Simulated scan of single mutants.
Amino acid sequence: MDTSKSDEPHLRHVEMDVLIPKKMREKARERCSQEVKAFSTCCKESGFLMVLKCREQNSVLKDCLTKHYKDPEFFELCKQEYLQEKLEYERTGIPAKKREQKLPTSM
């Protein structure tokens, strides 16, 4: 039995298969922001022809996102971030999004 995994809290199916991958998608979009911007700009400029005109930008964006989705270190980073948010929620009862919204107003 791997002792390094025994210290981690048990994650439910929904956390492993839905919540952590959602966090990965959000963070991957941030890391691929230039590719997202290039694809979005192309789509806005191309209108209905975006399917034909933006293939290259779409391909570059997919490659960037897929690189992150398949990276085990990136998964682990997102999992640890999720666990921190979960512990903070259990401690305070305030969801991460509400905590982030309240932070600037208290300064």
Rank of each mutant, 00 (worst) to 15 (best):
K22M: 07
E56N: 08
E15G: 06
F39D: 07
K97Q: 14
Q84N: 14
K98F: 10
C42D: 14
D71Q: 01
P104M: 03
E26R: 00
E100D: 07
V36Q: 08
T66N: 13
F75R: 07
E88L: 04
A28S: 09
L61R: 01
I94H: 06
K70E: 11
T3D: 12
H10E: 14
R91P: 00
M50I: 06
L103I: 02
M107S: 15
Q57G: 06
Y82H: 08
L103P: 11
H13V: 08
H10C: 14
K102L: 15
D71H: 01
P72H: 01
D7H: 15
D7Q: 11
E88H: 02
D7E: 12
P21V: 00
M1H: 14
T92E: 02
T92W: 02
D71Y: 01
I94D: 02
K37N: 11
Q101H: 08
G93Y: 01
D63R: 09
C42A: 15
T92H: 12
S6D: 11
R25S: 00
T66V: 13
L19S: 10
Q80R: 14
K5F: 13
L49E: 07
L49F: 11
C42K: 06
V60I: 09
S33T: 10
C43Q: 15
E81S: 05
E73N: 15
C42N: 12
Y82A: 08
C32Y: 00
L11F: 01
V14F: 15
I94C: 03
Y69P: 01
E73C: 10
S106C: 13
K27Y: 00
D63G: 08
I20W: 02
K86N: 10
C42V: 05
K27F: 00
S40C: 02
P21Q: 01
S4F: 13
R31I: 05
E85N: 08
Q34K: 11
L49T: 09
A28I: 00
H68Y: 08
E90Y: 06
A38I: 06
Q80F: 03
E76K: 11
A28P: 01
Q101G: 03
V51H: 09
L52R: 07
Q101I: 04
K44T: 04
Y82K: 02
D2V: 04
K79Q: 07
Q57F: 01
C54F: 03
L52E: 07
E73R: 14
R55G: 13
I20C: 04
E30P: 01
M1W: 14
K67C: 00
K79N: 03
M1N: 13
L87R: 15
M24Q: 00
T3K: 13
C32M: 01
S6Y: 10
C78A: 03
Q34I: 03
M107Y: 09
M107Q: 12
I20T: 03
K37A: 12
L77Q: 11
H10Y: 15
D17L: 12
S40F: 13
V18I: 11
L103C: 08
K102C: 12
D17M: 07
P95F: 12
M1F: 10
G47M: 07
R31E: 15
K97G: 13
P95K: 04
